[in-house]
Design a protein around this nucleic acid. Structure first.
Length: 581
RNA sequence: GGCCCCGUAGCUCAGCAGGAUAGAGCGGUCGCCUCCUAAGCGACAGGUCACAGGUUCGAAUCCUGUCGGGGUCGCCA
């Protein structure tokens, strides 16, 4: 049940009726007609901008349209008041039974409340993390992982058919570096003294990989030239790193549906095929790029390269797909990879990148636009930096990796639930401060705690009611008489619950899962407010001693809140708690 | 220099397809525990939505420009 959608439908029907009666011209575009919660609750329960939006196309005064619309709407039993206000707003006051209906619907639907079909028939591919397989995931990847996973869950809940995907960058020079680094650890395992030159990965996490390599091949590679072992060690090392990364993701509760190997694009004609597709559209040419505007790189010299005419699809300059030595640039396999995604038939693509990849957004979009002839939209979400703090001090080092704080460091310290929630308490494109002490603090300025506390409070009431012999299963609560739910704090809470489907639609449309976290914080706040009213006004307490019927009606509302919190946390990948300890 | 993101209360940040008197937390001041968990709740104070134009009945929101912060910029992915 989405009460906002229902009432909007009512408004649309009324407008259609007015058209039929000739009071409005026929054929008006109603797409921009909105029904929203008013900023000020004094204005009513809902407001519509219909009259203002339609005034110009209809050639009428807003207030005249609003007046006629109000007349029509008043005939619906759910609308008790419809007043024209301001420049032409139509403020609606709903019958209190509407909120009772919402609560009943929530109890009836349970975890399905808020699900929608907005994405019905749409296959969406969400690619995220896609970290190089050269070491454990670090904090930045953690944010991308949480964001991508929550976004995928959100789209899934909104009716999309979602694939979570990870692109393994196992085709470039960095995996050769990895192989050489592992080789050094391998020699070390054989008791050799080794030095880690610049350009190798010194992290401790490779020690066990070197040992494992020794266990596997013995001394076969010792004192052998690189061409003997490089390919084999590279594969061994990449596999080990991917196993590590999968473990990291599992620790965070992230499950990838599809891992896609960059390497699989080489030597198989797939890069060539993708570029041939572009070539067939006249978008590939040999040419010399203009030097960058402004300050020139010192070693700049004009070079003829194979270029993709990305400017035809919105990019600022054309982009090279081959290096001067004839090898592919990294962009070439990326084009092939996205070509593959398009050919797999997705209706929409989403890439989650770190903010440092912001410079690639336009060219990637240009490539997808060109390859799909503009049919497949690509949205690229950038996740900003995470700044870590501990004891108020910036916190940088990891014991394990030697250089950066890993995903494991974070999850081990605060747990996956706190990690995930906190990572979503900022917009993806805003920097995030993550304070190891603060996120574990039990206070109101810690949103995780505050939301969990609200959930636990409801659970506590349910336990106490059950102990008092009052039936509080959802079926019983759904049948409770909710006509006494009239206090402003109760209505405010029910109204918030009613907003859940609408909030989800907005979050799904904008690809912004953080909105869920903020909504849950507000919902929790409304519950805590009502809870505390019970201190002064015993009749507002959820549990009414010796009065099962009233208790059930009160608890029905509380239970509806816990259903929404539980569902919302579920989308964020956070487990709701039953009690605070 | 080009491109991208950001600029909202003392601090950290929300702001929903443009909508009415711009919100929350922290910090400040003042209240609330014989009472379902006070790990909480209520009230007050606090704003030139960086700045200047433009579009619109209406702009924090859209467009242009300026300033400030960050990121990025052809043989690294």
């Amino acid at each position: 049940m989405n009460i906002y959608a229902d009432i909007r439908g009512l408004v649309i029907d009324a407008l259609a009726a007015l058209e039929g009666e000739g009071l409005l011209p026929a054929g008006l575009d109603l797409a921009n007609v909105a029904v929203e919660p008013p900023r000020d609750p004094l204005h009513g329960d809902m407001a519509t901008n219909a009259a203002m939006v339609l005034a110009k196309p209809a050639g009428m005064k807003p207030r005249d349209i609003a007046g006629a619309l109000a007349e029509k709407l008043r005939s619906d039993p759910r609308i008790v008041e419809a007043d024209v206000a301001g420049p032409g707003f139509l403020n609606l006051r709903l019958d209190p039974s509407v909120w009772a209906d919402v609560v009943r619907a929530v109890l009836g639907q349970g975890g399905a409340y808020g699900r929608s079909e907005m994405g019905k028939g749409q296959r969406v591919n969400v690619e995220f993390v896609s970290a190089n397989p050269t070491g454990p995931l670090h904090v930045g990847h953690t944010r991308g992982a949480v964001f991508g996973d929550a976004l995928a869950a959100l789209l899934d809940f909104s009716g999309h058919d979602v694939t979570r995907e990870y692109y393994i960058n196992d085709g470039g020079a960095q995996v050769d570096v990895l192989a050489r680094s592992v080789y050094l650890r391998y020699l070390e395992a054989h008791g050799r003294e080794v030095a880690f030159a610049d350009g190798t990965y010194p992290g401790d996490y490779l020690i066990e990989v070197g040992q494992a390599l020794k266990d596997k091949v013995g001394d076969a590679y010792v004192d052998q030239p690189e061409d003997v072992w490089l390919v084999a060690v590279r594969e061994f090392a990449t596999d080990a790193m991917m196993a590590l990364i999968r473990e990291d993701l599992a620790a965070l509760g992230v499950e990838i549906d599809h891992y896609f190997s960059e390497k699989s694009l080489y030597g198989t004609g797939r890069i060539e095929a993708a570029l041939a597709a572009l070539d067939a559209k006249g978008l590939i040419y040999e040419g010399v790029l203009e030097p960058p505007k402004g300050k020139l790189p010192e070693d700049w010299e004009p070079r003829e390269q194979t270029l993709f005419r990305s400017t035809e699809h919105g990019d600022d300059v054309d982009r090279p797909v081959k290096k001067s030595d004839g090898a592919w640039t990294y962009f070439a396999p990326d084009i092939a990879y996205h070509f593959d995604k398009i050919e797999r038939g997705y209706d929409a693509l989403i890439d989650v990148f770190g903010a440092d990849h912001g410079g690639y957004v336009k060219r990637m979009k240009a490539a997808v636009s060109a390859l799909s002839d503009g049919r497949v939209p690509l949205d690229i979400k950038l996740t900003q930096l995470v700044k870590l703090y501990k004891n108020g001090e910036p916190f940088k080092m990891s014991k394990r990796a030697g250089t950066f704080v890993t995903l494991r460091d974070v999850v081990d310290l605060v747990g996956p639930d706190v990690t995930r929630f906190v990572m979503l308490t900022r917009k993806n494109d805003a920097p995030l401060d993550f304070d190891f002490d603060k996120v574990l603090e039990q206070s109101k300025d810690n949103a995780v705690f505050y939301v969990q506390y609200a959930h636990a409070r409801v659970k506590s009431v349910l336990r106490k009611a059950a102990a008092a012999g009052i039936a509080v299963d959802d079926a019983t609560l759904a049948g409770a008489d909710l006509s006494a739910m009239t206090h402003e704090s109760e209505i405010a809470l029910a109204r918030k619950v009613a907003e859940w489907p609408r909030l989800l639609e907005i979050a799904a449309r904008t690809h912004e899962p953080h909105r869920i976290a903020f909504y849950l914080y507000e919902l929790a706040g409304d519950l805590h407010a009502l809870w505390n009213r019970g201190n002064d006004s015993p009749e507002l307490r959820f549990l009414q001693e010796g009065d099962p019927a009233t208790s059930q009606s009160k608890i029905a509302l509380a239970r509806a809140v816990s259903v929404v919190i539980s569902t919302g946390l579920g989308i964020l990948g956070v487990t709701p708690v039953e009690e605070m300890r």
